[in-house]
């Protein structure tokens, strides 16, 4: 599978995850979000950017429990809870937000 933007092709795997995270950009993220039926707001971008930073630092997409805790530490307790994150990403914050962030499927994503 692949995403086409302005004639450039971005390869995705059978579950729709971007194959090469270095190819990621905001336009790719918007298409991936559309495929997930997620309408990107500032709050969505905040989580997606947080995930990319986490991946850069630790080379891993965090499990949802870890993501929740880490977001709480960085962005405040009102955002570091699963209710907030599930409202933004109804089909699972780790899975959907990671996909939009161009990261591989989280390790420990059950």
């Amino acid at each position: 599978m692949a995403i086409e933007i302005n004639g450039k092709s971005y390869e995705t795997d059978e579950e729709g995850y971007l194959v090469d995270l270095n190819e990621w950009n905001e336009d790719v993220a918007k298409i991936l979000a559309e495929q997930e039926n997620v309408n990107m707001t500032d709050q969505h971008w905040e989580v997606v950017n947080f995930l990319r930073e986490y991946y850069n630092e630790f080379q891993i997409a965090p499990a949802v429990r870890v993501l929740t805790k880490a977001i709480g530490k960085k962005l405040g307790a009102d955002k570091g809870n699963s209710q907030y994150l599930y409202e933004l990403f109804p089909y699972g914050p780790a899975k959907q937000a990671c996909k939009i962030a161009g990261l591989p499927k989280p390790t420990g994503c059950v």
Binding site: E57, F58, Q59, I60, P62, A63, V66, K69, A70
Partner: peptide
């Protein structure tokens, strides 16, 4: 190959 060493630093988060 992927450098997985930074991931050891995430263990504490887990």
């Amino acid at each position: 190959v992927k450098n997985f060493q930074p991931t050891y630093r995430a263990l504490d988060d887990y």
